[in-house]
Amino acid sequence: MQITGHTIFIPGATSGIGLALARAFHAAGNVVIVGGRRTELLERIVAENPGMHAARIDTADPASIAEAAATVIAEHPELDTLITMAGIMRAEDWHSADGFLDTAEEIVTTNVLGPIRLIAAFVEHLQSRPDATIMTVSSGLAFAPLAVTPTYNASKAAIHMLSESIRLQLADTSVRIVELEPPSVRTALMPGQEESEFAMPLDDFVTEVMGIIASSPDATEIQVENVKFLRYGEARGDYPYVVATLNRLDPHGH
């Protein structure tokens, strides 16, 4: 993926990593469309970032995804990049169904079905562009589990394998699949995470991500240095140590 010259739709870009990346891509010379549920928040973001565009979308609602896709493609036929940023992270207690079932279903709907439905809504259009990208968003927790967030961990592992698989299927098209793998980043994804000393400052994370994209445009996985401890535990042979360290030191891991 080149760092500039694209038209990018980012559902889930009204806060946190999504908004920071939207601003960074906008500053790098891309046309950026931010997506989110709250119209007033989208309007404020557009007003604060002249030249940015917005589209209302609820990625937990199939009808909203279909409607937003039709609108974005009609208004921005040059669209060539989709970043499936929207996601939620919740703590769960699996000792009884009351402690996790409703939450787990909500996470799967947003974190797994949401990206699948988004890709389904845009993949045919993206294949019509000469150089297109789908950027999925997994997590370091796809590779090492945080005990308090079982379904989140599983949802991000699913996104990793989905990315690996559709990359193979779409190898005969103009669409490349890039997987962004954040570590814990100082955002409001989980209570207390914005103040966690173990989480990476948001600006540092985005700066490193943009640097990786600029220097390695053919990368299939975007990995900042902070995530490699989690990502490669099994390959290094220290996976038990990684899991023990993660769960002892970082109650707000991403």
Rank of each mutant, 00 (worst) to 15 (best):
I17R: 07
N153F: 05
L168I: 09
T4L: 07
K156V: 08
R248P: 00
S96G: 11
K156R: 13
F25Q: 11
I177V: 12
V108M: 12
P145W: 04
A147Q: 12
P50R: 03
G51H: 09
T71H: 12
V31I: 11
A20S: 13
S196W: 01
V148H: 07
R117P: 01
L230H: 09
F143W: 11
D238Y: 09
A55V: 09
E164Y: 00
F9K: 03
T71I: 10
N111Y: 06
L230D: 06
E40P: 04
I212T: 11
L180S: 03
D250Q: 14
M200F: 11
K228P: 00
T103N: 07
S155R: 07
A28Q: 14
S15G: 03
A13G: 09
R231D: 02
A22E: 11
G12F: 11
E194S: 14
S163H: 02
A171S: 08
E48V: 08
F9Q: 05
V31S: 12
T4F: 11
R167F: 01
R129G: 01
L249G: 02
M161D: 04
L146C: 05
E48R: 05
M161H: 04
P77Q: 03
V32Y: 05
T149A: 15
S15E: 14
H6G: 05
Q223V: 07
I17C: 04
E234V: 12
T59P: 00
G51E: 10
L146R: 14
G233I: 04
M161N: 03
A20P: 02
V148Y: 02
I159Y: 00
A158W: 02
D58E: 15
D58P: 08
F100Y: 15
R37F: 07
T7E: 09
S96N: 15
A154P: 08
P145S: 14
L113F: 15
G51C: 08
L126P: 00
Y152C: 07
N30E: 12
P62R: 05
T207R: 14
T81N: 01
P240T: 08
G12M: 10
A20R: 11
E67Q: 13
A142I: 10
H160L: 06
I134M: 00
L79R: 03
P77F: 03
P182I: 08
E106F: 02
S96L: 05
E48G: 04
P240Y: 09
H76G: 01
P217H: 12
G99D: 13
H53C: 06
E225S: 13
L42C: 13
V31L: 08
N247I: 13
L162M: 10
V224P: 02
M135H: 08
H53K: 14
S163N: 01
M161V: 06
L113D: 05
D172F: 01
L168V: 06
A244Q: 15
R186Q: 15
I83M: 12
A244G: 13
A13K: 08
H53D: 07
